[in-house]
Amino acid sequence: MSPRGALTLFTVLALLSGCDDMTVQPKAGAWSPEATLVTPPQDTVAWGDAALKPPPLTLALLQRGQQRFRIDCTPCHSELGDGNGMVVQRGFPAPPSYHIDRLRQAPTQHFYDVMTDGYGAMYSFAGRVSPPDRWAIAAYIRALQLSQHPPATAVQTSR
């Protein structure tokens, strides 16, 4: 190899080696295919996903429920819970309003189960909403129902 050729090769290799700058390393990121393709074994529940007993009703629980409701539920159910959210206005089949008798009389567990398993056109939210948050949202739905249909005694008291 001529000296000039060697110099060229040297320069090219030196410059090329600069490309290997460790910004990309052979390790699995949170969403590399190896990580996302892991499916949980049968009959197992992800950590923290086990069914819970309903927690005691507190103001903090309701506030948490309101926050999560506005994230995960309002696109369809709307902030009022009347089933006329933005996505429904764009063509998604309207869910029933929370303020119908069937749902007012349904046990709280019903809302929890719908979030866990889905219902009708509604997909399961088990992967997005953790069990404690499901209870919080369920509690908030109860509060929504109450807000649209207050018992006469409560109205009087507040006066």
Binding site: A6, F10, L13, S17
Partner: peptide
């Protein structure tokens, strides 16, 4: 000197 260049190239590699 050629050996030096060669060994440096291999080192870079």
């Amino acid at each position: 000197t050629s050996g030096l260049i060669g060994s440096i190239l291999y080192l870079f590699f």
